[in-house]
Write a protein that binds this DNA or RNA. Structure first.
Lengths: 212, 212, 212, 212
DNA sequence: AGGTAACCGAGACGGTACGTCCGGTCTTAAG
DNA sequence: CTTAAGACCGGACGTACCGTCTCGGTTACCT
């Protein structure tokens, strides 16, 4: 499909990387508000139209810059392989890893920028921006939970999307409230509590960890 | 203590209201990005310095405008009185009411603006801005959970802050992903699922969710 | 030399004219004090940066606006052609014309604005602003007087610059003192009196006017 | 008529002096444009209303500040006593002194400020502001010329106001063109040239300028 | 002597204008 | 024929200053 043969001068691939890198650098310094297309172009050593030709808005640029960052690039398919057989163990491991990546040095401003980009324009270009960004992770988590249900490790009939929303949303909320430090530490406990309600009823009495 | 004697001309209280109302109006039209100090001043019929004299930044102004809105003003202490005796019932009612207020016509842009204000500047003036804003609600929810634990309706030893983060964060996440419509509908199911893990073990068999 | 090839979008020539015309309009209404860069931009239908890009200060803008006005445009080289052969006749005609142009309807505020621009900032950007503005006229007058000296119609050895200063300065002084009406009426008499001292000595006794 | 007895607290005379002195100080630093009512009040150590209570506008304040300055205070009646008997000698001495005072260190910005105040608002409060300011000097000069005519030292029938305008205007013009240095040096020559046309015809042969 | 009225310094008020930054668009040259 | 870069354009920024008003308090006249 489409023209495989491009006409005219080809785009510089190096410019893309320079622009994204400049955007991440500015995000690290001043957060979402500290990013300006002007500064991005200047720091990347390109003209402003070059930036606008590739990203339609600051929100889109920032989203791409964050999602293509080294730390985020690894998020895309991390949890499938972690199939230990126990859904509780897998989800704990995944959420903990998730939280640790989010709170790694220099990553917090990037995550917040994602939220800012999604929140600043309700009727903006990318209406469900945040969903687009976090969708793959959300779906992967839901898939793992479904597998747990199929394996009889979790009770059926629950709203799995709601559970995934709660787990991911808790991390987001902690970041927004400046409580990032707690995220990784609490991740396992959070999963344990939330999944408790999923256990098949008869097994519930042994589920308390430590003493409960 | 402090100076009881104010010098100079006193501030106009009417201007405060006009500015906040203008801010809310603009938030409704164009979201956080659609608010400019210039437009706020013009719509409120005051000069720009009058705005800057009272709020140091757009983020601070937006935060105040949202929190003093009619719908938000009622949030501050709603859940204490809802003491039906059953923690599950109370929290469900509270979260559902919370979700309904957030998703009432015209309220979504206000909530998103709060997130945008909190997220756009990590090292900004109000570092833990969002916590300041949502703190009272968070604490009220934790207090109700603690009462449930004390009454023996919930298992002890859980991280109540984490649970509250999950419940509130889930709503926030749904808003950011454009899934606001689901928030109110799912609220009760969400509470049920999350609190399931709290039930004291022997009583687990009665916990079956009414609706599933 | 110099780059004949300009890069980037060229400036709008129409904007220049609109800005200058708006400036003259405001000068007519409220004088120099009534001109603001803000109002100029608004009336010209352009943005403020467009004004600042072309003129560095209000003084420079006003100076250009006045000097490019219709009435002033004709001042640049008016007296050379008036070569009737008699220096007294020529200078009288020139000064009268000069005075009449200055005091034509709507012109007085423009001339005063020139003086205000020159006077408000001693160490400003255009230190000898007024000289730059009136220099051509001054030099033309001096040239005509020199020709009169060369033709033996005026006595040699006088400070021609001082004489030109006196003739032009008299008009300026009358404008500043609100005595503009008198300028044109007195112009000829003023020239006659001042030039009297220039006549070659032996002819002085017949110098009463009429024969000049 | 009217109340000679004022009620209430009398105005502080010291404040007047402090305000005028502060105004002169600011004029010296930044010219007319460098004076702001705010800065005047601050430097004088008084409140802004105290300034506005005494002077209605910046132009009026600046005018008073200049005219009550030490150097200008002496201008009011200097030329009457200079009655040497020879009108040429007297006027030369007066104009030279006038020029020297104007161009004394720190005085130029004051004189320019006077011109700026007069020129910035054609239809402003003090329409004939400059005339009010320079009127006494102008009238004194005309009076001396009239005495010269009466004594037979000058020819009758000339427009003495025009001559005075030329002498004073020449100095003003030189100041505005940044040619202040020349003013004092040229003053005598200027007077000599201008008055030449006034001499009664038979005496013309002695008119050769002593210094040229 | 006590009231009262006009002044005082201080400073915040509402608002105009300032000069600058930045988001986007257009024009021309390079590839 | 499409890139790339530079200049241009106008909206909005945050600040300085405008001239006014409101204070608490002082100073003198006038009952």
């Amino acid at each position: 499909m489409s023209e495989t043969t491009r006409r005219g001068r080809p785009r510089s691939a190096a410019a893309d990387q320079a622009i994204l890198e400049a955007t991440r650098s500015l995000l690290g310094s001043g957060g979402y508000a500290g990013v300006s297309m002007e500064a991005v172009a200047a720091e990347a050593g390109v003209g402003k139209p070059t930036v606008y030709r590739r990203w339609a808005s600051k929100a889109a640029l920032v989203a791409d810059a964050v999602l293509t960052s080294e730390a985020f690039g690894a998020w895309e398919q991390p949890e499938e392989p972690a199939g230990s057989g126990d859904v509780g163990h897998d989800v704990k491991a995944w959420l903990r890893a998730h939280a640790e990546r989010m709170t790694a040095p220099g990553q917090i401003p990037l995550v917040l920028a994602l939220a800012a980009a999604a929140a600043e324009s309700p009727g903006g270009a990318g209406e469900p921006l945040y969903r687009r960004l976090t969708g793959p992770r959300h779906r992967a988590l839901v898939a793992r939970l479904e597998a747990g249900v199929a394996a009889g490790q979790l009770r059926a009939g629950r709203d799995l999307d709601a559970v995934a929303d709660a787990l991911i949303g808790a991390l987001l909320y902690q970041l927004l409230t400046g409580n990032a430090a707690a995220s990784a530490a609490r991740a396992e406990d959070l999963v344990e509590t939330v999944l408790e309600g999923f256990r098949p009823a008869p097994l519930a009495e042994t589920a308390g960890r430590g003493r409960g």
